[in-house]
Write a protein that binds this DNA or RNA. Structure first.
Lengths: 233, 233
DNA sequence: CCTACTTTGTGCGTACTTTCACAAGGGCGT
DNA sequence: ACGCCCTTGTGAAAGTACGCACAAAGTAGG
């Protein structure tokens, strides 16, 4: 099993696993800061809110980085997960739309510290263009192509109103962006080579409403103990 | 039209389906506004960015609301999906944390129009308490219990810094909130009867980075046509 | 060196999801 | 009234994901 070749580098990590790696990473970074050297799958799983078998299976996709009887070396695992997620290199991000949401994103600390550099903020509203937000001057949306080209932006973030989203997306894609994070409540149309992920507040609330309604209809749901949120994604 | 048996009311709608219903609903509401009366699964699927077979199977969980040879009645389907999601009743929401993100959420239009009423905004920072945001006066976090109790808040939104999130969550839960939408980058601990959904910007970016890295490693990915974003959730 | 104990990595059964492909149902023109 | 054509609803297959339970592998102590 895994004859320790130069690189286990399995190119087929399940999507569900990829979505959990950032959670493990954050937990591990917290451990590292607190000076913990090693951690067992059981403990890490508990912090991350998942089943320990699932955690071990997830990590096994990256290679055999644990030590039986001991656990995982925290720093080493941080490095391996970071590398797998592509966080050992820097990614350049541009944000379109500087409303409250755009500002919240621009000021979000977790950006820079994790390999994401904000190259530019764009807006169409001339009352906002020229303002300084999070240390950057807001540029007019019509400079998008120039900036994306010269700064080699890989990820475009869309925080515009819904009506503008597809147009901005098209311009991002045309300019060479290959990943888009969409906060606007619309389904974006992109070529197959472009990845899109969406974050949609209204959808999340509606899903919660669905379950809330169930609880009301049914009645006393099973109440047992205090568990880690399974945070269904 | 469609006399239908009393209630197919299958209480077992798959989670994956529930997550897509809001997307269909939004697409249908757009159609309704534009005056479209009926729509085929093929067309609706295309707008929603999913496979038409998947759409039909999703809708089949709600009952048989289509007409063969014709398609679905837009208004009727809007109603059925709304009812299933619990949007025919109003849900009361409270938001904790009135930073840029909290403001963005409070000002987000899609709230009120879809059955979600914001009952209160809370913050711990005295410089913010008393401000008016989106027509509401920001209250001190210590009034959370009073308000949640008297306003019958069902959904708590956490838009605080990470360090405060678990504390606020505990107070929400203790006060009787049974659904939580968490924007803070932490894994929340809640009793089993409480639903938690998380929205985590940093995780989304890391997932995009992973795929971005793949594209770079590999090389020319298959480029074929122009498709609907599959927006992996 | 050998035994007892701990924790990983994974084989396997189960459950959920997606997709295909097609029979059944319903409208519409003649 | 009949038959053609369209679109739904669904059985079955294929692909994913999950979690149990345990053998393998490593530590620690005598």
């Amino acid at each position: 099993m895994t004859p320790r070749s130069p690189r286990p580098r399995d190119r087929g990590i399940p999507e569900a696993t990829v979505a959990r790696l950032p959670v493990y990473l954050r937990a591990l970074q917290g451990m590292a800061e607190r000076g913990t050297l090693t951690i067992s799958s059981e403990d890490l799983a508990s912090i991350a809110g998942v089943n320990s078998a699932k955690l071990r299976k997830d990590l096994s996709h990256l290679g055999s980085y644990g030590t039986r009887g001991v656990g995982y070396d925290v720093d080493y695992l941080v490095y391996q997960i970071s590398r797998e997620l592509g966080l050992t290199q820097d990614w350049t991000v541009a944000i379109a739309g500087v409303g409250n949401l755009g500002r919240a994103l621009a000021n979000y600390g977790g950006f820079g510290t994790r390999g994401f550099r904000i190259a530019a903020l764009f807006d169409a509203d001339l009352r906002v263009v020229g303002d300084e937000v999070a240390g950057l001057v807001v540029r007019h949306i019509d400079t998008l192509e120039d900036v994306v080209g010269s700064e080699d932006v890989a990820i475009g973030v869309i925080a515009t109103p819904a009506v503008s989203a597809q147009g901005v997306c098209d311009r991002f894609v045309e300019a060479g962006v290959t990943s888009v994070l969409n906060f606007a409540p619309v389904v974006l149309n992109v070529p197959p080579a472009v990845d899109v992920r969406k974050v949609d507040l209204s959808i999340e609330l509606q899903i919660l409403a669905f379950h809330e309604q169930r609880k009301a209809d049914g009645q006393a749901p099973p109440e047992a103990g205090w568990i880690d949120a399974t945070e269904k994604t």
